[in-house]
Design a protein around this nucleic acid. Sequence first.
DNA 1: AAAATAACTTACCAAAAGTAAGTTTTTAAG
DNA 2: CTTAAAAACTTACTTTTGGTAAGTTATTTT
Lengths: 113, 113
Amino acid sequence: MEKSNCTCTENEISKICKDFHGTIEFIGKRWMGIIIYQLLKGPKRFHELVENIPGISDRLLTERLRDLEKEGLVSKKVLVPSQKKVEYELTPGGKELEAVITSILHWVKTRQK
Amino acid sequence: MEKSNCTCTENEISKICKDFHGTIEFIGKRWMGIIIYQLLKGPKRFHELVENIPGISDRLLTERLRDLEKEGLVSKKVLVPSQKKVEYELTPGGKELEAVITSILHWVKTRQK
DNA sequence: AAAATAACTTACCAAAAGTAAGTTTTTAAG
DNA sequence: CTTAAAAACTTACTTTTGGTAAGTTATTTT
């Protein structure tokens, strides 16, 4: 096994690297960032998301919301069963992404100057 | 113009939203995150990046490095002209992405528990 | 009674990413 | 000295993902 200049083993490093990569590929999927950004403001209905995210299509929004549900980051509430009223909300785990989003917002702002 | 419950005008909000979206779509491109992560450790040669990023192809690595150069986040040094020795390094602007990367790393770690 | 809204789904086309092979120069090996 | 391997790409081709448009079903509005 190779030497490393930190306290992690090679396996730990490659695991972190792999998890990091998987995670950033997931939250970096197209539209994902701005969907999370919108949901951080509070629960939103499907059409509210469409309206607040210029350019997104309902097909992709559906797909992304399913991805987020599968990862347990978003929960779907059916407001009135047997009616087309649903609401999407970040789970506690999803809300922990706030720091990621704000760090990107901060970077965006510093670049604009 | 609609009312808004913050101090920004509608135009300012939509500009931030647009810039944020553009930025996150850029740094969220496939492989981008892990390339930046690797470069935060210091300058790296092309083949070092290939070796440290499992699964990436040289075609996509080239493409992403060009993207990063265009945005002024990475600089390419030709170590020996007329020779195949180059090195890629984050610019000061690129290094400011560290906070973004560490916030994602942090999120990854808290999720693992 | 007809039109619009909500939250999707299906089908099709375009763009991006993956894969594999080829190129040029340079270094290493036999 | 000839051959092989490495470095940093480029080109061509296939697969996957994303974009666009239309259709669906059940409510709500006009």
